[in-house]
């Protein structure tokens, strides 16, 4: 029970701290002080969860307090602007999602420029997926044939979400089968609507996997290079004849002028978190794909992503104030 014991100690510590003062902090080169992870979304989503996992590991590794600060707003732009303006000392980091790449095109105005930030690591992703109720026609081809004559609708986590853009881009541009988009407040509610057969199709990323595994929903296609291990029966778009890749990811960013040594240190630390066997199993089990890219590769990847999502945003034709 070592894990349990350490937690109990922590508990006792927390209880003590409630009445006493802070413990002493040991000095180190980096980080010299408390790290703040600014999360671009409210508590509860995967971005937040990922930040908390990372925060916990950094705290264990360096013995410095790590604070997770949820700063939801303007689709993630509020948090990005805050970190973009922060001191480039590696103590204020941004944890955000694909939204930061999408927002470059989606939002008419932002309070920061993307080059004020440097990507530290983009190491987990989950492909955009479309699924339907099991009572609907079978594979993607049959489904599209049925959809063409049925004026279908599809649900997603919201206007301008990665799931919305990927699905609508596929339907409108690639498959030439326009559908009515029905936005829901968050991915969970959109999946629910599909489970209850209220909507014709749902677009989502990892959130859909348990439902597909149980056969409550039927996966039509995943927008990844290869099939996802957690749902091996769902073909990729490419297999179905529509070469198309769109993935949702979680990324950690630092202010642009952060010394590259610090960026590398952070990059290595986050890579360790993802490589940790226990985390690895969990993440893969949830249907995530793990990537080991260097800092330079991450920058290049981000650039490609901005271009790719930008094209989708323009093709779909949405903007947000």
């Amino acid at each position: 029970m070592p894990a349990t014991r350490s937690c109990l100690t922590k508990l006792a510590g927390a209880a003590l701290l409630l009445t006493a003062s802070a413990g002493p902090l040991s000095a180190q080169a980096y980080p010299p002080d408390r790290i703040t992870l600014v999360v671009a979304f409210a508590p509860g989503g995967f971005v937040d969860t990922f930040a908390r996992i990372v925060g916990q590991k950094l705290n264990e590794k360096w013995g410095k307090a790590v604070t997770v600060e949820n700063k939801a707003g303007a689709g993630g732009n509020t948090a990005a602007a805050q970190v973009a303006a922060a001191k480039p000392d590696g103590l204020t980091l941004l944890v955000t999602s694909t939204a930061i790449a999408i927002n470059e095109t989606l939002y008419k105005k932002r309070d920061y420029a993307l080059d004020q930030l440097v990507p530290v690591a983009i190491s987990v992703s989950s492909p955009e997926t479309i699924a339907t109720h099991p009572s609907k026609p079978g594979n993607l081809k049959d489904y599209l044939a049925w959809a063409k004559s049925n004026d279908i609708n599809f649900a997603s986590a919201g206007v301008g979400s990665g799931s919305h853009l990927a699905a609508e881009y596929f339907l409108k541009v690639l498959a030439k089968t326009p559908a009515t988009h029905i936005p829901f407040r968050g991915g969970a509610l959109s999946v629910q609507a599909a489970l209850g057969n209220q909507v014709d199709m749902v677009a989502s990323s990892f959130g859909i996997i348990p439902q597909v595994q149980e056969g409550k929903l039927k996966g039509l296609a995943v927008a990844s290079q290869a099939r996802v291990a957690a749902m091996p029966d769902v073909p990729t778009y490419t297999e179905a004849g529509f070469p198309f890749i769109a993935e949702s990811w979680v990324g950690v960013f630092a202010p642009a002028r952060t010394p590259s040594a610090i960026v590398e240190t952070l990059h290595a630390a986050i890579a360790e978190v993802v490589a940790d066997p226990a985390n690895r199993t969990k993440l893969l089990g949830m249907g995530y794909q793990l990537h080991s890219r260097s800092v330079a590769e991450t920058s290049a990847y981000l650039k490609d992503e901005v271009a790719k999502w930008g094209e989708m945003v323009r093709a779909v034709g949405v903007t947000v104030e």
Partner: peptide, 27 residues
């Protein structure tokens, strides 16, 4: 049973479960 968090608190519980490698859902 459905893997659908009905409110913000439950969404946070999903996050917590995820940290522990549990994917809430029918299974």
């Amino acid at each position: 049973t459905l893997g659908i968090p009905p409110n913000a608190v439950m969404a946070l519980m999903v996050g917590a479960m995820t940290i522990h490698g549990i994917v809430p859902g029918p299974q």
